[in-house]
Amino acid sequence: MSISSETPFPRRPGESVVARLSCLAVQPILTRIVRRIATRHPSLFARLGPHQATDFLIDPQELPFALHLRPDPQALLLRAVPRGAAPRAGATIRGRFLLLLELIDAEQDGDAAFFSRDLEVSGDTEAVVRLRNALDDMDGSLAEETAAMFGPPGRAILARLRRTYVGETTALENT
């Protein structure tokens, strides 16, 4: 299938500086996360099939950067990238950060998020479907595992993020 051209990312003044600093700050965490997932959940790579080599761009809308994922078990890559410097991706997945996290953790249903238009996908739909199914077969909570890597402060940050997300979602539903 054809790869659609990506929707241009809207840029805000000063965003690129903030984005680059944020990317530098989170990269060590991302590297730990992705290595941990690969070690604990090796079976997910089989479900990706030929899309182990696909470049995914995961775009958490409210964060100052996007995530570039290439789920190749031989050369696993998860890196934060400023939106203005994002690579041309085979598939892009866009939504609010905690929605994306809840989708990975099977706390939300991807199809329902798509129906409601809270989740947006573009590019190679098969790649997205494979990634979704691979992650959905993963037991446990990626959010909890990641938070646990950083002890009580990590869990506190996750709890706060969730409270904020639930509050904002409720507010949006009531408008």
Partner: peptide
């Protein structure tokens, strides 16, 4: 089949769903 499906976002926020190059809906 997902390999034949593509979602295209338009500038106004609309989204077209296409199958094998044919637009089958626009939301």
């Amino acid at each position: 089949p997902a390999s034949d499906v593509e979602y295209v976002r338009d500038a106004d926020g609309s989204m077209s769903s296409q199958l094998a190059g044919f637009t089958i809906d626009r939301f």
